[in-house]
């Protein structure tokens, strides 16, 4: 379900999620595009990442932030993310599914603002990243 304006938003509503692409190729391309290269294998090679003491190649935290803002943009095609704040609690691994979620926690109908709680969980449903977002929606 999508929302066109602030009047469509319901308190407690969960945004429709999509399945983020956490494949190693996607992660590698993302890391290169933001100028991080392959991070010595950290974002491109599970074995090389393990030599750095990591459990495997990582999904960058800001890539997960990107998954979350994409979910918001899909939910509110006319909305604008004014602020997004994410806490990187634990590593998210490449080539493993992750589950993104967002729920409406506050609505300011006069200002057209929505507050969301965000989370990214791994396959074991452990929270890896959490945060909040403030989204501006049309009031008309």
């Amino acid at each position: 379900m999508t929302v066109a304006n602030i009047g469509d938003v319901e308190f407690g509503a969960e945004l429709a999620a999509f399945e983020p692409d956490t494949s190693l190729s996607a992660v590698t391309a993302f890391a290169a595009a933001v100028g991080w290269g392959d991070g010595g294998g950290r974002f491109s090679d599970h074995d090389r990442a393990r030599t750095q003491g990591l459990p495997g190649a990582l999904v960058p935290g800001i890539m997960a932030m990107g998954f979350l803002t994409t979910m918001i943009h899909r939910w509110a095609p006319a909305g604008r993310v004014e602020r997004v704040d994410t806490v990187f609690r634990a590593p998210l691994l490449a080539d493993q599914p992750c589950h993104i979620s967002a729920v409406v926690t506050d609505i300011d109908e006069d200002q057209g603002l929505v507050e969301l709680d965000l989370s990214v969980k791994n396959e074991a449903r452990e929270t890896r990243i959490f945060g909040t977002a403030r989204v501006k929606l049309p009031t008309g």
Partner: peptide, 10 residues
């Protein structure tokens, strides 16, 4: 690339 790899469609 950053937009597409995070699933952005707008």
């Amino acid at each position: 690339t950053v937009a597409l790899r995070t699933g952005e469609t707008r």
